[in-house]
Nucleic acid binder design. Structure first.
Lengths: 337, 337
DNA sequence: AGACATTGTCGAAGCGCTTCACCAGGGGCG
DNA sequence: CGCCCCTGGTGAAGCGCTTCGACAATGTCT
């Protein structure tokens, strides 16, 4: 293993000089810097992470807590995780993966052991158990999602209220009068995950404002759940012509079921999905959708953490503006028969 | 921050004693052990990870390299990643997430910096760039997937040859004579990812052995690709009655397309999927499938790494036996008209 | 009873790095 | 000209832990 001392000897300088070349915390003459950098490259030196963490009291690691749940859309989680990792690398940080299996105490362990110097929480619930611990340990943190009381916390999320409203507006603009929101699994609502409730709130409010008669139904994953939900809605409100779907796992089944019930998309009914663009593009017909900016959410979370490390106060909400892309699944409401 | 020295003072022993209590590397009297353990709990002590890594030259971290690609089935990756993380925790280890964006040199960086003391590689290609580096640095490693030359490496994977054969056998047993394998995206084959080619080989060989006329087509994600693939197969070989599908992303679209072409499942055609049980159960009809034991793959990889750390030679292939579960999507071949 | 293991504890060295305090050598300034 | 203040470099302390060797205090065997 190559150490800093060896690099120093090789370059004919003192260890501290090498350290300062690497960290850039002191001005170094052009000449010595180059000499040192050449030695580093030549010897293939990489600083020892542990030693660095010990001496500097910072580990350059971000801990990422992901949920174990399966009722969330996994690819979105993954996309966020990957965006976090690549952004972190850009700042010279690595990412430690924590699952919620270990329980909320993982927060304490990580903070106390100095394994990471910041935490990103995904899939935040309204009353999340981890948040009191976070406040107590005073660890640097960013949340993806909104808890009930976000005061003093750094939060990043899509503006789901605006998302629900945007979808309702789109359908209203197209002349639809009866609309339905097909949401996430019931367990998600029971858990009081913020995004689902916020979407619903935004949707309801805007639908009411636009004079739409509206309906909301949760929907589990899988064919059974999806077709059951659709047929119950159609039975209850046969004149529903606008659907907003916030449930990627059920999407193909919902479309299939609509087709089977004799409704053509978009001629008879319109569908607006809340999903990643990729999913919208891979459906048939391609879906009008409000996209979930997974990459940006991950990137922003890391950037906020880095600003926080630099002493900035980053607390507050960063709500990303939703954008709706019209594709083939929505169109003017059919004239009443 | 609580240090080991503080614990020692609190318990009235020397720091080394506390260390030995924690590591268990020396015998300690019942009495002192209890006293120390109480102090640890009382003070809420957690060893500093960096200091520990520096002194012991082991970080208790496993690096997990996951691919950035989107043509693999993401939920399976995630399931493996989660299984790895929870198993690692059981051994007192944490998991560092690396994406392939950083390139193969990430392997070198991690090994040299002592950030992790073992690496798990996912999505291994037949001629993987990371493998030479792995051999060169001599880092402890486990691969999920098989490279072309696995000699000296510790590999874990589903036995995909047996998987292909098993699916062919199942269809043959049911009396089907013309079968087709609908595989992963073409890019996966072009990249020479082992699992796709091995499934194909096993399928071909067993189909030939059982006297089946067989066909293979890659298939991209999304509706377009799926329905195109199906209709081309049906056009080319209209009497195909058995389908093996190794492409989760295309699965719902394929089923839809079959229905649309007037083929009932399982009355007219049988479908065997190679996918996680969850996907098979959420389809309609529920799919006969060979499951992908994602959890076990992750678990085994970690266990092998731990054995390796204990000095065992774990090199060689660990191929998990595939199991086929018959559900609603396969049945006896229809008698020829 | 003496020699010899065994057991439980301690002290100190040192892992590789950062960072503080210090110093030498030039300017620029009044 | 003397002063101070930059700039670029060094030395050494110390971060919190592991681990080796030393050493009492026991027990065990002839």
């Amino acid at each position: 293993m190559v150490t800093l001392a060896q690099v120093a000897r090789h370059a004919g300088v003192s260890p501290s000089t090498v350290s300062y070349v690497i960290s850039g915390k002191r001005s170094i003459s052009q000449e010595t810097r180059l000499r040192v950098e050449r030695s580093i490259a030549e010897l293939g030196y990489h600083p020892h992470a542990g030693a660095r963490a010990l001496a500097s009291n910072r580990s350059n690691v971000i801990a990422l807590m992901i949920p174990l749940r399966t009722d969330m859309f996994v690819p979105v989680m993954m996309e966020i995780a990957i965006a976090i990792t690549t952004t972190a690398r850009r700042y010279g940080h690595d990412v430690l993966l924590l699952t919620s299996e270990e329980g909320p105490s993982a927060v304490k362990r990580i903070a106390a052991s100095g394994l990471a110097d910041a935490v990103i929480l995904m899939d935040v619930e309204l009353e999340d158990e981890r948040i009191p611990l976070l406040r107590q340990t005073g660890a640097a943190a960013a949340l993806i999602g909104l808890p009930a009381d976000p005061s003093g916390l750094t939060c990043v999320d899509l503006d789901f209220e605006a998302t629900g409203a945007l979808a309702a507006d789109h359908l209203a603009d197209l002349g639809h009068r009866e609309v339905a929101l097909i949401g996430a699994a019931e367990s998600v609502y029971r858990r009081h995950t913020g995004f689902a409730e916020r979407t619903l709130a935004g949707f309801r409010q805007q639908a009411a404002a636009r004079g739409l008669s509206h309906l909301h139904r949760p929907c589990g994953a899988g064919h059974e759940a999806a077709s059951g939900t659709i047929s119950r809605i159609l039975q209850e409100r046969p004149h529903t012509t606008g659907f907003v779907v916030q449930n990627e796992a059920a999407l193909p089944h919902l479309l299939g079921q609509l087709r089977q019930s004799g409704r053509a998309v978009p001629e008879d009914v319109s569908v607006v999905a809340i999903c990643p663009d990729e999913v919208a593009l891979h459906s048939a017909p391609q879906l009008t959708s409000v996209s979930i900016p997974a990459q940006e959410m991950g990137r922003r979370a890391v950037e906020l953490l880095m600003a926080q490390a630099g002493g900035e106060d980053t607390s507050g909400l960063t709500l990303l503006r939703p954008t709706l892309t019209m594709r083939e699944s929505s169109g003017p409401a059919a004239a009443a028969p």
